[in-house]
Design a binder for these strands. Structure first.
Lengths: 204, 204
DNA sequence: CGGTCAATGTTGACAGTGGAAACATAGAAG
DNA sequence: CTTCTATGTTTCCACTGTCAACATTGACCG
């Protein structure tokens, strides 16, 4: 029962095919251009077929979001592994976050769009928590290494998430023309995380 | 020429009435529940009437966004005026930003939603720039007072915007259950801005 | 082997939406 | 009073999400 794309009545693995087509569609036309019927069209299936695999339109979008969170988490973990000290690992985490958003803006928007943030979806909520978990662990590691002031772990992690999350949105939305377009995302991410870590530094 | 409330033809300044109804609708049902026809219905006018005042659905949403940016800018300016030192003025700006988002989440989402960020709308782009302008001025003031390291003004302002923008979204979207729900927005905003300013501090 | 059944896919409907075109009306301008 | 133009209405269209009824298929069981 491999998904051989024959023109059989039964598709083999339609759920997976729908998800992949949805990913492509979102990447191509953005979250607004996403349409259940268009996804079905691309897979070559009738417009009601998706309902056998996803309860409603938003469920498919949530699956897209979940896929995105997994990919981002993996990218963050991978970026983290290249570094040794808790500080640089922490920073690598943040930079990977921003980079993912800049590289996959539509996907990132779906991940934090209105259909994905209501957590009636357990698996989506879990992978979202994992993302924040990475930041939390990094903060703890920095605290244990004595490079970040102790206490208020959650609050510090929220601050860290805020800064990369905000920068990510500013870079993909460009809400002001006074943000110079030539600024490199990576450099900015480095500056922003450095500044924040400096502010969280343990002072003696 | 802008239609002043006096030159009422049939309805009597329908444009304004539509905008106000749109504001209410967004506040009630969120950006997703916003519908041109529902707005028309609430004003008691046919579903095609809005097209005499707004080129398309997104234009009305952009007007809502513009209204929101004006209100937020005013709130920020007002919060700023209560303080003396450049640092506390800067921080007040950021806290007002977060507070506005938390107090008007739907409105805030529209302001940074996908329909408002493409800047084919001159007046919307202008008021967006003004918001960033406030941050820029505050950074310059802090630099002149010697409490923020000189240079890289734009980058520092972007960092400041990032942190309040990100915190705003995290607070209204709550993307992780590991963000404790009881944390007060205001305190968090204070912590986050303090941390950032500490990081931007001039070091001797 | 054949029959039954649940899973999967299709067809056709429905209400709701954004948008365009043709028509209607009322106030201003002559 | 007539005419013109800005505003509002009606009517239509293509498209969407969703549902119910129907069709097909492979798997399981006698």
């Amino acid at each position: 029962m491999e998904p051989s794309p024959t023109d059989a009545y039964h598709h083999g693995d339609l759920g997976r095919a729908l998800l992949e087509a949805a990913l492509e569609l979102v990447a191509e036309r953005g979250p607004a251009g996403f349409t259940l019927r268009e996804v079905a069209r691309r897979v070559g299936v009738s417009h009601a077929a998706p309902y056998r695999h996803f309860a409603h339109r938003d469920a498919l979008l949530q699956a897209v979001a979940e896929e995105g969170f997994s990919a981002m988490r993996d990218a963050m973990v991978q970026a983290c592994e290249c570094h040794e000290t808790p500080q640089s690992r922490f920073q690598a985490l943040g930079i990977a976050y921003v980079r993912f958003a800049v590289d996959h803006p539509s996907h990132f928007r779906v991940m934090f769009g209105p259909h994905s943030t209501k957590d009636d979806n357990a698996s989506l909520a879990r992978v979202r928590d994992q993302t924040f978990g990475l930041l939390l662990e990094a903060v703890v590691a920095c605290q244990q290494a004595g490079v970040v002031r102790p206490g208020a772990t959650h609050e510090i992690a929220i601050a860290a998430w805020s800064v990369v999350h905000g920068l990510a949105f500013l870079l993909i939305d460009r809400p002001s023309r006074r943000i110079p377009p030539e600024v490199a995302a990576e450099e900015l991410a480095r500056l922003v995380t450095t500044t924040l870590m400096e502010g969280m530094r343990r002072r003696d």
